[in-house]
């Protein structure tokens, strides 16, 4: 069974009088541990696809099964719990809370999960170690470089040991050298089993991925021409 199964996902937006189809009947299946790049021109729907995968957005039609469970019909609180426990986000603009230290930022998902402070500290240190920033634990985001900030954000994304990492242009705000380091860090995490889905403009980064999903006007073109699995689990 695939980890992620999208089936005929359609997402439309109302822009004034016109209805825009950001995703039009997208079906895709991603296995656990895959490394996928979502590519395509601006406005092609790749961010919308990522938001849907991250349960930040709901489709107008279709089904999304995450680890065999239909998550489209969950309540918003249940979806929040799924995001907290199974999904790690990495954003282009890092999205760190400026008044919290690096360690506190990393531990945020644990705090939202109600995990006691001692456990949080220990796990945050572990996560910081994985991204190589143990020495910066007590620093605030404005005392860190862009690359360091993105590492903190990645540590935050992996602290709950999620099933997948969703990265939206993770190197968009970074220079070439730092980008390289961040990509390598993400690939290392993928190498130990975390599914990695990256939205990117950068063709180099896209080519590193083992699988590419090309979006054009809301229609998905899979580099691995895999037939859509028959709709087995659907009533």
């Amino acid at each position: 069974m695939a980890q992620i199964e999208l089936e005929n996902i359609t997402r439309t937006f109302q822009l004034g009088e016109t209805t825009v189809r950001a995703l039009s009947s997208v079906s895709v299946s991603i296995d656990s541990g895959e490394y996928v790049a979502i590519m395509g021109p601006s406005g092609s729907g790749k961010s919308t696809l990522l938001n849907l995968l991250g349960l930040l957005d709901r489709p107008n039609a279709g089904h999304y099964r995450l680890e065999g469970r239909d998550v489209t019909t969950l309540s918003s609180d249940e979806q929040a719990a799924v995001r907290r426990n199974r999904i790690g986000f990495v954003f282009q603009s890092f999205h760190l809370v400026p008044r919290l230290t690096a360690a506190e930022n990393v531990a945020l998902p644990l705090m939202l999960g109600g995990i006691p402070p001692e456990v949080r500290r220990r796990r945050a240190n572990d996560a910081l170690e994985k991204v190589g920033l143990t020495s910066r634990a007590g620093h605030r985001p404005d005392e860190l470089s862009g690359g360091q900030r993105q590492r903190i954000a990645i540590a935050r994304a992996i602290i709950m040991q999620p099933a997948m990492l969703l990265a939206d242009e993770p190197t968009g705000n970074l220079d070439r050298h730092t980008s390289q380091e961040i990509v390598e860090l993400l690939e290392d995490l993928n190498a130990v089993g975390t599914t990695l889905i990256v939205v990117t403009h950068d063709p180099d980064m896209g080519h590193r991925a083992r699988r590419r999903l090309i979006m054009t006007d809301g229609i998905l073109d899979d580099s691995r021409k895999k037939p859509v699995p028959p709709a087995t689990g659907i009533p």
Binding site: D77, A81, R83, R84, V97, G113, M160
Partner: peptide, 16 residues
């Protein structure tokens, strides 16, 4: 606003 969006993305529910 962005911070609220982040909190939601990393699993805060509305009550939080």
């Amino acid at each position: 606003t962005a911070e609220i969006g982040l909190l939601k993305a990393i699993g805060a529910n509305n009550r939080d």
